[in-house]
Amino acid sequence: MSELLQFLFSGLTVGAVYALVALGFTIIYNASDVVNFAQGEFVMLGGMMTVFAYAAGLPLPLAALIAIVATAGVGVALNKLAIEPARGAPVVSLIIITIGASIFLRGVAQVLFGKQIHRFPSFSGDTPFRIGGATILPQSLWVIAGGLTVFVALYLFFTKTLTGKAVLATSNNRLAAQLVGINTNWVMTLSFALSAAIGALAGVLITPITNTSYDVGIALALKGFAAAMLGGMGNPKGALVGGLLLGVLEALTAGYLSSQYKDAAAFVIILLVLFIMPQGLFGIKQTERV
């Protein structure tokens, strides 16, 4: 029983990161119908920049803040320089553009930060809490709390603020949103900034546990995408539930089946979800219009 609890703890921790990546996907997908394969690179950049700002002598919270803001800037640049100019391009082109962006960012990180593994200390020490025979790191609590906070904040943003409603309106119908005076280009920029910042936050939270290096992004992007699909593409609630569920399933696979095939869990889930219920847990079935 305590074993199961232990797997659940580690699963929820990783799952919270997947949920954050999935939320990032969701925000951009809703605003632009683009699936951003460079989403994982935001996580990498968040962790990486914090490492170096901290090493340069800045206090950890300030270092993290700088990393998040800078990554948001990268997100805006990605939108302005690569996504906006390619508006209306076929999906294959957009896939290649965002994968290109992901490879590019990884290349830049490799040049700037090197190929080593980096880390910075946990926020509140490394003394684990004991709960029901299992242990959980304080940093894990930070990650899970971070995931939930972002979700609640996003929920409030999208339902209670005018700006948030403008984003939702744009995702529903771009043309109609333009007609009622919403600056949809601005909405896109905001979405990329928000999405990148959330990714960077995930990187800041998880790095003390998993460490980071220039090439962690792609795996995270795929897991995040799997989570988003599991929950139902474009649905924030689905992203949260999908992320946590995927993290737990992965931990259970590693614990009870095979740690080598831990990563396979995500892809088996992607394939199963797509075959059995392509709309995901919370998605809406769409009818093609002719």
């Binding site: 690569a82 082109s93 290649i96 994968i99 290109g100 992901s102 490879i103 590019f104 290349g107 040049v111």
Partner: peptide
């Protein structure tokens, strides 16, 4: 060699944006 990935990514993006 160090810049290989960086350049590959850049080329992928540029070609897709400017030469559809």
């Amino acid at each position: 060699a160090e810049y290989e990935q960086l350049l590959l990514g850049l080329i992928m993006m540029l070609v897709m944006i400017f030469m559809r």
